[in-house]
Write a protein that binds this DNA or RNA. Structure first.
Lengths: 239, 239
DNA sequence: GAGTGGTCTAGACCACTGG
DNA sequence: CAGTGGTCTAGACCACTCC
């Protein structure tokens, strides 16, 4: 029976409960879950709440449902979301290079329209803007601009992101559990600012990536734009 | 007022209606939508149906909601999701463009080393190589080179891929069930051959995508290289 | 105080599966 | 025929914004 903790929606609490039963092995891979009506009874919530929790876990790949048959835990839970974008630090270390950063801006500013839309906050809401040139073995590699709702990570700018990893801080200090990301990818010619910051000759190519990143709960926590030097980066997705 | 067409759920019909209002400009970018309760009244459906439709469009990036304020159309709607895995034909039709193709090569050839590795066949094994310029409304859009193990699709070259969709043939005639894909993405400057085929000026950018595609069973069935004109393509991953 | 999005309840019908 | 997932309704409360 779930307590009604007003701080978090019931359907999220139920999704968490079910997910922990799956990851702990209490519900084994391939197992059939209790029916929706049983879950209502077991947890003392209404049908729509159960369905919303199941729908969340389905969209994250932990469950699948067969109409008129039942709902099952998948046999192979999905891998954690893709690598290269997650942590630049981890990416470069895996290639045997030393990561470093130059912080161009680290500030709390009012959200401009485009950012507010992507972060699902109101325009003008306080947003952390963190703009960094990322280097590998001292060579400029990409220009990365992250935006996070300040309400989700108050006081985060007390960290020094020239040396610390944003994701490490978010996971360790703020308890974030990273979920899905949605990418938009383009190829651009480098503008003068990017060319200067990335130490590129004119008419160079840039791999332009925008990513909207969500927590496991579905809450959008970051909108980040990355401009990669095309001559030293290749993105891998899937695997 | 929506008819109750039993063939499709109400919330999908409502989402379609709203989406068409957005893409047609009837609801302009940045506009506020009618409130949830108004939408109930306008379309004669219940609140949960409205919310489900809005939730769908939100997760696809067409809308965002600010609690206690309202729901708004985003200022720049996202391109339709497109991964290389999806058929080019489907991609362009969804954008309201007429797809066509110029076949540069359609042949069974011995696998060269790089292709053999990706397809998990022995070098020299017979491989279908299908190289096409894909056009949307007559404008060159990308240069696509697909490789498939000939053993998986014997006789496939009897189809005319200037007009037919490779994926439609694979699914309908060979019973393929498409599974995962692994992508590698780069930004390149166009070489002289690509520039000529894609009708590009010199020093243009190319979005270079390699995709290794598997059946639901895990069997690798295709290795495809696509060179996109950067000025008319943007890739979306994740949804 | 009227209106908003977000959450939640208690119930209902449908088309279908499986014993 | 009992049970399932999928869909849908009519209503409710909350915390908050805008006027």
């Amino acid at each position: 029976m779930l307590e009604h903790d007003p701080s978090r929606p019931l359907y999220q609490q139920l999704a968490d409960t079910l997910l922990s039963q799956i990851t702990s092995g209490q519900i084994a891979p391939g197992d059939e879950l209790p029916s929706a009506r049983e879950l209502e009874r077991i947890h003392g919530v209404s049908g729509i709440t159960v369905r919303r929790a199941l729908s969340t876990l389905r969209s994250q790949g932990y469950l699948y449902s067969v109409p008129r048959r039942g709902t099952y835990a998948v046999s192979a839970p999905p891998p954690p979301p893709a690598g290269a974008l997650r942590s630049f630090s981890a990416y470069s270390r895996r290639r045997g290079m030393q990561p470093s950063s130059i912080v161009l801006q680290a500030a709390v500013i009012p959200a401009e329209l485009r950012v507010a839309e992507r972060l699902v906050v109101a325009p003008g809401d306080p947003v952390v803007r963190l703009e960094r040139v990322r280097l590998a073995d001292g060579i400029p590699f990409c220009l990365q601009t992250a935006h996070l709702p300040h309400a989700l990570c108050p006081g985060i700018l007390s960290h020094d992101f020239a040396t610390e990893s944003l994701y490490t801080v978010l996971e360790q200090d703020y308890g974030f559990v990273i979920g899905r990301q949605t990418l938009r990818i383009r190829a651009n010619l480098a503008g003068p600012r990017e060319a200067a910051l990335l130490d590129l000759p004119p008419t160079s190519c840039i791999l332009h990536v925008e990513s909207r990143n969500s927590l496991a709960s579905g809450q959008v926590f970051e909108f980040v734009v990355i401009e990669y030097r095309a001559d030293c980066y290749e993105m891998t997705i899937g695997e």
